[in-house]
Design a protein around this nucleic acid. Structure first.
Lengths: 149, 149
DNA sequence: CCTAATTTGTAGCCTTGTCTACACTTTGCC
DNA sequence: GGCAAAGTGTAGACAAGGCTACAAATTAGG
């Protein structure tokens, strides 16, 4: 049906490979997003109340406790958290480090959104979804932008 | 184990309900993100080469053709696209309208990223993931920010 | 100290999005 | 016109992330 010869298309579309790579990265980011959110929340709970219980986590995320427990199991599988039956959840060193990175990134994203005029509440809400897709290069740019004003 | 009385926690954590709502929104966004990407890509392919074939779509996304076909089936189920066996895919009026909205949003996000100093390539790549999580309020803010400089 | 409420854990089941493998059209070329 | 290549479609498997329902442990009150 004419495939090979369609190289005369308009130039504004990126190459196949480049586009596939971008979408691939977005998909990967999505798969780690949940882990990042959990780790950050658990870290926050540990810091503010000294413990992180599955039901608290579940309530914060707005999911059932079963779902939270399953995800915590995945966290443990990936070496980010530890827990013993009927005791709360704790983070490994790696988990805590990830939490710190995620927290910093979250703040940076919120700050940038606010700096360009997004209302604080909205910035906070949008950042929850956005933060997982912001590359390190972009984060550096954000930092410079915020410093330069 | 002390749950009810933990209301003395540090004040920087949002309320349970607010946080649950935010995460819920982020989850919902994720579920529509794929549809949006497909619709936008199909629209681009139609505009640039006159047809959108499942394998082209698959290659652009970097997934197998089977995956692309399944997602296209979902697009049809949701009234965004039409297709007949062994012919290409086309968008319904609704699908084309969605594509236009998504395209505009994508451009706006890229423009904002570039405006705050993110390198164009990186902006384009990051926008692919970010765009699905930017609320209308934030988009308005982006527009104002870009106009005001 | 015993019972009831809460929390935790387990066991299915569903949907999405991905894949590979196989079957069937359509297209293109000699 | 017929055959090989390319594209299209279908089936079945798998992991992730969600749910409900049930079972077991812990905690709290009387």
């Amino acid at each position: 049906m004419a495939a090979k010869m369609e190289r005369v298309a308009k130039p504004q579309m990126p190459t196949e490979a480049a586009q596939a790579h971008r979408f691939g990265k977005a998909r990967t980011a999505q798969s780690t997003a949940l882990l990042e959110d959990y780790v950050e929340l658990i870290s926050d709970l540990l810091a503010s109340s000294g413990e992180a219980r599955p039901t608290d986590v579940a309530r914060r995320f707005g999911v059932s406790h079963a779902t939270a427990i399953k995800t915590i199991a995945r966290l443990k599988r990936e070496g980010l958290a530890t827990s013993k039956p009927y005791r709360g959840v704790f983070l490994t060193q790696e988990g805590e480090a990830l939490a710190e990175r995620v927290r910093a990134r979250h703040r940076l994203v919120v700050d940038l959104l606010v700096a360009v005029g997004v209302p604080p509440d909205c910035a906070e809400a949008d950042a929850e979804g956005i933060e997982h897709h912001v590359s390190d290069v972009a984060l550096d740019a954000f930092r410079h932008f915020l410093a330069r004003r």
